[in-house]
Simulated scan of single mutants.
Amino acid sequence: MAQGRLEIDGVSKRYGDVVALREMTFEVGAGELFGFVGSNGAGKTTTMRIALGVLAADRGEVRWAGEPITLATRRHIGYMPEERGLYPKMKVGEQLVYLARLHGLKADAARRSVAEWTERLGVAGRRDDEVQKLSLGNQQRVQLAAALVHNPAILVLDEPFSGLDPVAVDVMSEVLLDKATDGVPVVFSSHQLDLVERLCHRVGIVRSGQMVACDTVDALRAGGTVRLVVEAPLAPPGWAADIPGVTVTEQVGARTVLELGDGADDQAVLRAALDTGPVTEFSRRRQSLTELFRNVVSQEVAA
């Protein structure tokens, strides 16, 4: 299947009086890793299910390579649901072959693909085991294999890193980066924002069913609050309290963290610190994705 762009365009969904999605709009380009983040109940899973055709949107459209997604298109999507979807009493190898064939692979190709992915994901020795006999981490690896075994053109993964140990996180990360390198658009949700920040080309932050921020991590952080970290061993408590436009957010021993408001002069901070004695650290720090996320999701939704 040709490479293309996945588009979520103005998708809305309501359950009675509950609005699950409000004009949800974003796109994921070929070869892009897109992090989809938000609090529980923000609308991430609903969006993914609509993209897969598990749910129907009330309004809006999902497109692939400029065309509405059809049943035939969905056979080329690799999906990893948050609640997982494996048959617990079925053997790992048999189940993966079955799922690969459902997506259109012939028997020999399905067996080769199962062998390849179970080897790469570290569960080749468990192919003859029932899923229910695996650890939760290994079940997660098998679930990822199920999303990959048919060589999908699109990957949609709901909390793929949940419950994984650090080694498995590294394996999963490498797989997602490799698929993006192959030109596959990859969208995944995660509460592990350090991973999102490290892996993703762009991030979308969802609040109450709406996309409230969407850009590269660097661009999102650049628009956030600027902080200064100052280490002045002889500075007394409250040494920076009277500097215009500056808020002290933390002071522990010699280390002070300050937040700069619009128009605040970092050089005024440096002069004030030097007036107390030696300064051993003076550095700017942009807020992390985790800090940005907390700020964004805590804001009230505009009426």
Rank of each mutant, 00 (worst) to 15 (best):
L234N: 10
T290W: 09
E281A: 07
V257E: 09
V269Y: 11
A232S: 12
A254T: 04
E250I: 00
S283R: 04
V248P: 08
G263P: 14
P244G: 14
W239Q: 02
V248D: 02
R271Y: 09
T247V: 07
A254S: 14
D265F: 04
A272G: 09
A268W: 07
E250Y: 04
T247I: 00
V252D: 15
R255N: 11
R255H: 13
Q251G: 14
D265S: 08
L228A: 00
P236N: 02
Q287C: 07
P244H: 08
V248Q: 09
A264W: 12
P244Q: 06
T256D: 02
E250V: 04
L274R: 12
L234G: 05
I243V: 08
G238S: 11
A235P: 09
E231M: 02
Q251R: 14
L270M: 15
A240D: 04
R255E: 13
D266R: 09
S288Q: 08
T249Q: 09
V230W: 01
Q251S: 14
A272Y: 07
R255M: 07
G238Q: 00
W239K: 00
V230I: 02
L228S: 05
V248I: 06
E250H: 11
L289G: 08
A241Y: 00
L270R: 07
D242Y: 03
V269K: 07
A254W: 11
Q287G: 14
S283M: 14
V230C: 00
Q267G: 15
R255Q: 13
A273W: 04
L260H: 13
A268F: 09
V246M: 05
E291F: 10
R255L: 12
T256G: 04
G277Y: 02
D242V: 01
V252G: 06
A240M: 00
V257H: 06
L274K: 07
T256E: 05
E250K: 10
V248N: 00
G253H: 03
Q267H: 14
A235I: 02
A241C: 03
R255K: 13
A268L: 12
S283P: 08
T247E: 15
S283T: 11
P244S: 08
L234T: 08
T247Q: 06
V279Q: 03
L270E: 10
D265N: 13
A235S: 10
W239H: 00
V230S: 02
G263H: 09
L228I: 13
Q267R: 15
E250T: 05
A273P: 10
